[in-house]
Design a protein around this nucleic acid. Sequence first.
DNA 1: ATGTGCATATGAATGTCCTTCATGAAGTTA
DNA 2: TAACTTCATGAAGGACATTCATATGCACAT
Lengths: 301, 301
Amino acid sequence: MHIEFRHLRTIKAIHDTGGLARAADMMNMTQSALSHQIKGIEDQAGVELFVRRSKPLRLSAAGMKMLAAAEAILPQVAALEAEFSGLVSGKAGRLHIAIECHACFEWLFPVLEQFRKAWPEVDVDIRPGLAFDALPALRREDVDLVVSSDPEDLPETDFTPLFDYEPVFVAAAQHPLAAKDVIEAEDFRGQTLITYPVDRARLDIFSQLLTPAKVEPAAVRQVELTAVILLLVASNRGVAVLPDWVVRQVRYHSDYITRPLTRAGITRRLYAATRSDDTSRPYMAHLIRLARQEAVKLQRG
Amino acid sequence: MHIEFRHLRTIKAIHDTGGLARAADMMNMTQSALSHQIKGIEDQAGVELFVRRSKPLRLSAAGMKMLAAAEAILPQVAALEAEFSGLVSGKAGRLHIAIECHACFEWLFPVLEQFRKAWPEVDVDIRPGLAFDALPALRREDVDLVVSSDPEDLPETDFTPLFDYEPVFVAAAQHPLAAKDVIEAEDFRGQTLITYPVDRARLDIFSQLLTPAKVEPAAVRQVELTAVILLLVASNRGVAVLPDWVVRQVRYHSDYITRPLTRAGITRRLYAATRSDDTSRPYMAHLIRLARQEAVKLQRG
DNA sequence: ATGTGCATATGAATGTCCTTCATGAAGTTA
DNA sequence: TAACTTCATGAAGGACATTCATATGCACAT
C-alpha cells in the first residue's frame, strides 16, 4: 500500500467541501485527478473509501478511518513545515549553550530569561557535561554557542568578545594573607585552595598563575556551587580565586576580603564561540548583545 | 514546501542506520536516490537537515525536528495501513446496528457481548434515533445492519430471517380481559394501551390488528423501557402487546397474564437487513448465527 | 605529504505515475 | 423525460523520483 500526504489531503478536502469538483477546485486540480487518485488508493488498499450509491460522494467506514488519520497527521506536517519556515525566516532556531566557565551560570541565567521572552521560538538550552570538548561539540553541531575564555584559531568558528574580568583572590577577613595588598603565586604555598570541580587547565588560577610559577597549594578542594565556595572561604576553611564580578554580588556572605593577583593584576576575556554560519543570525546577535549588557550590570555589582 | 512520507522514512532510515548507503540498502534504493532526495528537501525547505562537516552524515538541529516528526507520524500511517489490511482480510470492519424493533435491545445486548470477544477489531455500535428511515440509512452506509420485521424488496439489500415470535396480549391478573382465552381487536376498545414510543406503523399491535380492524383504544401511553411497561401493566394502569419472548423473561414482575391475539395467533418474523456486499462477510455471518442462538435461548424463557 | 578507501554529491537518462483533456455514465431535480 | 450535476474513464503529456556512472571530499595510514 502506498498512502501519501496527497491522499490524506484529498480525503479531507472531499469531506470538507462535500464533493469531488469543489475539492478539486480547492486544491487547484481537476476533478478528474481526484477521481483517479481515490481510485488508485482504493485499488491498492483494496478498500472502498466512498459510498458511490448516492451522488454527493460520501465517506464509507474505511473512509472515515482515513479521514481521522488525516486530521491527526496533517497538522503535524503543517507544524513541521511552519517550524522550517520559521527557521529560514530567522525567527526560530536552536541555541544550545555549553559553558566552560563554571561561574558563568550566575550571569547566563538572567540573560537567557530575557532572551526567551524576545525569541520564544528559539529552542534554548544549557548543555552541561560538555565543559571539556566544547569546541569540537560546536563544530559537530551538538551545541550552538560556547562560552570560553580561550579562543582558538579554528575554521568556521568565530569568537566574539563578551566582557573582561579579573580573577581575584578571596579569603576570610581573619586570614593571614588578608594583611597583604597583593597576592603572588608564592602566597598559595601551604594554602587550601577551593576551586570548581573542573580540570586545572580550565581554572584561571592555575593556567594564569600557579602552573607557570610551578607553585602547588597544600590542598585543593573542589566545590560545585559559587555560594558554597564563598561560605567555606568566609568560615576560613580555605582560600579561592574567583572572577571579580562574582565576588561583587552582594547577595553572598560578607566576612571575606578580596585582593588582586600579582601587582599588575590579571585580566581575562570571555568569548562567545559560534559557527560562522550562525554568527550573523539575528537571535544570535541579540543574545550576545544581552550578554554584554548583563555583564556591565554585574561589573557595577 | 513538499514534504512526503518518503522523506520522513528517509530521514529516519539515515538516522537509524547512521549512513546514506546503509539507509539506501535498507530501503531498497540506491545511495544516489537518497542523496538527491535530501538535497531536494533541503533546497525546497531552505534548511540544512544534515551536518556535512563530518563524514558519517549527522542530523542538524532542523534534522532532529524532522526526525521527531517522522517518529510521531510514521506509526500513525502504519496503523492506518494495518487497519486497512485488517479490513480486506475480513478481521476488521464496522458493524453499526439500527433496530426498528424496540424490544430487541433485550436480546441484542448479550449477542453483542459475545460478538465483541470474537471480533475485537470490528467497530460495534448501536445507533439509536434511526428507528424510522433505517433502511435508507443502511443503503447510505450510515449503518451496516438493520433489525426489522418488515422486509422490502430493495436492490443491494438482503433480509436474513433471525427468528419468529408472537406478539401477545399482556394485562394484570385482575384485569377483566384476563377472563378471555383469546383477545380480539374489538377487545381493545375502551382500553389504555401501553406501547413503545414509536410510530404506529412500526408497532405489531397496530399494523397487524387494530389498524386493519379500524379499532382505536381509549388511550395510548408511550413508555420507553420494557420493564416499566410490564410494571404499569401489572399495576393495572393499562394493557400491552409484547413479543412472547420478552414476556417470558422471568426477571420481570409476575402479576400479569398473557393471552394470544386472535384465535389463529399472530406470528411475526424478525430479519437482519444488510447490504449485499456485507452479507457474506465472516463477522456478519457470525453475528447472525449468534443472534439466532440467543433467540432460541430466549424462546425457552 | 601522498595514497587508499570509504562516504557522499552530481549530472544525464530513464521510467514511473500523476495530472490533464475530452468525454461518457450515472444520479438528482423539476 | 429533460436538464443538470456529479463522478468515472481512457489516452496523452509532463513532472519528477530513481538509476547508472562518475566525481568530489574526508579520514586514516604509511
